[in-house]
Design a protein around this nucleic acid. Structure first.
Length: 317
DNA sequence: CGCTTTTGACCTGCGC
DNA sequence: GCGCAGGTCAAAAGCG
């Protein structure tokens, strides 16, 4: 039950940084040191979070590249899915398992709202103005988390999903409060935390926890078989493929080290739909929309873009 | 009227 | 065991 060590080994799955100018958000994967994004169960890595499995090799590469800055143990995370406590395996994993994972995650996702309630509810419900009884005998399970930094003036970035704020807390050592949001969709228990970086107030750190079990309410369903042209958003579909490519790209950057993190323009839009892709994956998919939007920030990293965005998309601008 | 945000209180985990 | 910090709840207020 001791989660301690595990916790310390948090794996960082990536945390892109976005910077936004009006409607653009520029994202990059920062060195994630200092963040505690993923906890014990995270022996799953970025990929799992991404819900990617087919891309394994390069993804792994990428991840490992990304993580190094986080130093050692976590660096392995991406690949080791092994000696994690049982509960760890519990989380949503690959897209393939989406059906499975959704089932299981559903279990997990059973939702804080319901939070292990069943049995304890009755008795404890009485105590204290029937505050919800938190489970006592079982460690609270957490979804894998995926965090990224966004340079933005607004704290709560539009990501295609609807969120309800359920809390706000002052953060130690930071003048900025942390806000807690939950996906408003009934069966979806995805949560996200939003806070400003202490070191750089212009940066918003968004941490997603869990996977959406539904498509983004504000955008068409991802069409994974499809042509990138059947709808404005369908670019989503096209994304699945470029994955490897872009990963290697990250790698590149990482090695080039210039910006502490690769500068990639991304948008959190549509982040994570458990259906076929998950969090980061969808997130990355949607980012493409941004690539195509006329924006300076995007183009600034041209090399990257070229690498990331299909040439035809760039031309569309 | 329904939904979201605000906010104080409470719960839980962890370090000392 | 105690205190701290993070996370969550839920009533009240605000808003469209």
């Amino acid at each position: 039950m001791e989660r301690k060590e595990a916790v310390k080994v948090e794996n960082f799955v990536g945390s892109p940084t976005f910077s936004s100018t009006t409607d653009h958000v520029q994202t990059s994967y920062p060195f994630m040191q200092g963040f505690d994004f993923v906890d014990d169960k995270s022996s799953l890595g970025f990929m799992e979070l991404l819900g990617v499995q087919d891309f394994s090799p390069s993804l792994l590469d990428m991840i490992q590249v990304q993580i190094p800055s986080v130093q050692t143990p976590s660096a392995q995370v991406a690949t080791e899915v092994v000696d994690s406590p049982p509960e760890v395996l519990n989380q949503p994993a690959t897209p393939n398992s989406s059906s499975i994972s959704s089932a299981s995650s559903e279990g997990l996702n059973d939702e804080p709202a319901n939070k292990g309630v069943d049995n304890e509810v009755e008795e404890q419900g009485k105590t204290k103005k029937e505050l919800k009884p938190k489970k006592t005998n079982q460690k609270r399970q957490r979804e894998p988390r995926f965090a990224f930094m966004t340079k933005s003036e607004v704290d709560h970035l539009e990501d295609g999903y609807r969120w309800r704020k359920y809390g706000q807390k002052a953060v130690k050592n930071s003048p900025f409060p942390r806000s807690y949001y939950r996906c408003t969709t009934a069966s979806c228990n995805v949560k996200k935390r939003v806070e400003r970086s202490f070191s750089d107030p212009s940066v918003v750190v968004t941490t997603y926890e869990g996977q959406h079990t539904h498509p983004s309410p504000v955008m068409p369903r991802p069409n994974f078989s499809g042509s990138a042209s059947d709808s404005g958003f369908s670019s989503t579909a096209a994304f699945a493929m470029p994955m490897q490519r872009r990963l290697s790209l990250y790698q590149q950057h990482q090695s080039q080290q210039q910006p502490p993190f690769p500068l990639v323009s991304l948008s959190p839009l549509g982040f994570g739909y458990n259906g076929n892709t998950t969090n980061a994956a969808s997130y990355l998919q949607h980012e493409k929309r941004f690539y195509t939007s006329p924006g300076s920030a995007l183009l600034k990293d041209h090399g990257l873009l070229q690498d990331l965005v299909p040439s035809h998309m760039l031309k569309e601008e």
